[in-house]
């Protein structure tokens, strides 16, 4: 697995003399920090985001998610550590190089949309391109494509305040995609929306990603959202990552009580995939189910029988799924 974005021992401490302190005390604990009046917003973070992956960072308010994602894009200067983007150390890049990278390789969606109030939808979406100096005709063509992609055709001439929250975030998404970024940051993009719209936007996001296949760092404080969208999840608490893994890993093997707290109310059948429960053996003649399907989907297919035939993406049989195992899992929660 080649990592698109890696971060090694990244620290961000707020407060006076943070840098000198961290140089003296390589990995201070919470007590040491508070003794020095420092806020450890991000503490010793290591992570790798693979190409084409949706990497979700989940944590409660104040756990340091925004600070971390701003360190990754270097909107905030980390106190220590290394951030590698396509193997290049971002923290060593100069101002010009950073502008270059942000203009062409990164996009970001913001919690409160961050639309420019004085620009129309069209001009907002075209804004990153106009900053690059692209001429009007070319950038408007591109912007119209993006507006079309997020389903806002016909609203090009509207101003942000004339749109609903969901529509505004669609504009934010279109704008961040206009530069065709390789790396797409989304900082709690749906948190400011009400639950129904949030659900709709999540579906929209899944649809977009199935087309675009971007490398994504997605921030949320909503565990349900995380398991719906993520390929992998990192759970943050007090500036540290407590566990990284696929949604199934987290649900089946929570590393700490803190993680278990989140997973307890999750219906496992909706997270765990058939591949995880299947057993070796042949069940030809039985209804077939994909290994990547969720257990909750498979449960409907038994049709009175005891087993299902599990197949891979090409339809070749890879094993069988026992009704008993499914029932056990569903009874657990």
């Amino acid at each position: 697995m080649t990592a698109k974005l890696s971060c090694r021992h990244v620290w961000k401490l707020f407060g006076e003399g943070a840098k000198a302190f961290l140089a003296d005390t390589p990995s201070p604990d919470a007590a040491a920090l508070s003794a020095r009046n420092l806020v450890g917003a991000v503490r010793d973070i290591n992570l790798d985001v693979a190409e084409g992956e949706i990497f979700v960072i989940m944590g409660l308010s104040g756990s340091g998610k925004s600070t971390l994602v701003r360190c990754l894009s270097r909107l905030i200067e980390p106190t220590a550590g290394e951030i590698l983007f396509n193997g290049e150390n971002l923290l060593a890049a100069d101002e010009k190089r950073m502008i270059e990278i942000r203009r062409h390789r990164m996009g970001m969606v913001f919690q409160h949309f961050a639309l420019l109030p004085h620009l129309t939808v069209l001009d907002n979406v075209a804004f990153p391109l106009s900053i690059q100096g692209m001429d009007r005709a070319a950038r408007e063509t591109r912007a119209r494509e993006m507006i079309d992609l997020v389903g806002l055709t016909g609203r090009e001439a509207f101003y942000p305040r004339q749109l609903s929250g969901g529509q505004q975030q669609r504009v934010g998404i279109a704008r961040s995609l206009a530069v065709e970024p390789e790396l797409w940051f989304l900082d709690e993009p749906f948190s400011a929306l009400d639950p129904l719209i949030r659900r709709e936007m999540q579906d929209e996001f899944v649809r977009l990603q199935s087309k675009l296949k971007k490398t994504i760092v997605f921030i949320t404080h909503d565990f349900d959202e995380a398991i719906r969208l993520a390929d992998r999840i990192a759970i943050m608490k007090d500036g540290e990552i407590v566990q990284t893994g696929t949604p199934e890993d987290l649900v089946l093997n929570p590393a700490t009580d803190y993680v278990r707290e989140f997973t307890r109310d999750v219906a496992q059948a909706k997270v765990v995939r058939v591949g995880r429960l299947m057993q070796p053996g042949d069940a030809s003649g039985r209804p077939r189910v994909a290994a990547t399907a969720r257990i909750s989907e498979a449960a409907r297919l038994f049709d009175g029988g005891e087993t299902l035939a599990v197949v891979d993406a090409n339809g070749a049989p890879v094993g069988r799924l026992e009704r008993r195992d499914v029932a056990d899992l569903m009874l657990r929660g």
């Binding site: 894009s73 909107l75 950073m98 270059e100 942000r102 062409h104 913001f110 961050a114 900053i131």
Partner: peptide, 21 residues
């Protein structure tokens, strides 16, 4: 709003663009 400032930097605005645009 700090987010707007972040937006400006994320789209790669220079200092002057950040101020005036």
């Amino acid at each position: 709003a700090p987010e707007i400032r972040d937006l400006g930097r994320m789209v790669g605005a220079t200092r002057r663009q950040l101020t005036w645009r």
